[in-house]
Design a binder for these strands. Structure first.
Lengths: 138, 138
DNA sequence: GGGGAATAGTTAGCACGGCTAAGCAGTTCG
DNA sequence: CGAACTGCTTAGCCGTGCTAACTATTCCCC
């Protein structure tokens, strides 16, 4: 078995991610917008601070992303009745629909590439996906 | 065996790449600047057009990135003696040093994570690296 | 050889999303 | 009560993606 070189893996990761990132269309949400919506869709209502921490972003950056999502009606922002400093961000039905639509569009490029692989290679990527997730969260 | 979902793989890739990107050296090179320098370091002098195509970016974006690298003395831009329309971009010794420094730092972060894996997991990532490279180049 | 088409690079201007600094409102606690 | 802390926002800088439009040069075909 080949030796795993950090540089090789890193370059592969960045290259394929750059390709993925390039696969956008006009109607599509940006990376950060999509990512925030996906978190809200999966985890339920959160505060801006919690979202910023999760995305490893500073609070002002999250404010801007949320303002943009709010303006498009994809999220709601309501004051927290229990703590006047906090805001509760909630995904709207329209936002949830956008998550689904955008995800589908985004996955299309990758799905086409995966379709060209043989089952064993797909299995490798499935396992790698889990391992990389663990690394990213560490 | 788990099913490979495009979304899972895509999110894993983007998450870990985001973490990697955060590991920049003190020289404060951005991802795109670093990427261009790395290409020049590996492939030798290139034209802006060639760099733009390689990075899958429009020429004006590359112009700006190159201007910034030029201003920092990390690349040189000289007219092509053979074709008056073209420019030849060349990495400087200082630019090559920046590549090495950043690469070392990013590899270090990843190397620490890989060290926590067992050999079988590392083998999976080694194979995935090759598969992803092929996908990125497709 | 001359003239239009194509190519290379740039400039201008917009959008977006990182960041820090600073400010305001609300909460906590000595 | 008042000072310190927390949560969010605003203001403003920067990098980098884009398109449109411009200049300069080269190519190619009549």
């Amino acid at each position: 078995m080949s030796v795993l070189e950090e540089t090789d893996l890193r370059v592969s990761l960045m290259k394929v991610t750059r390709r993925l990132r390039a696969e956008k269309s006009d109607t599509e949400l940006t990376d950060s917008q999509m990512s925030v919506l996906a978190v809200l869709d999966r985890s339920g209502p959160l505060t801006p601070r919690a979202l910023a921490d999760f995305e490893r972003v500073q609070p002002p950056s999250m404010t801007r992303t949320l303002a943009s999502l709010d303006a498009r009606g994809l999220v709601d922002r309501e004051p927290d009745p229990a703590d006047g400093r906090q805001i509760i961000v909630r995904i709207t039905p329209s936002g949830a629909a956008a998550v689904t639509a955008t995800r589908r569009q985004r996955d299309a490029w990758l799905a086409r590439r995966l379709a060209d692989l043989d089952p064993e290679e797909r299995a490798v990527l499935a396992r790698a996906s889990q391992i990389l997730r663990r690394i990213a969260d560490s």
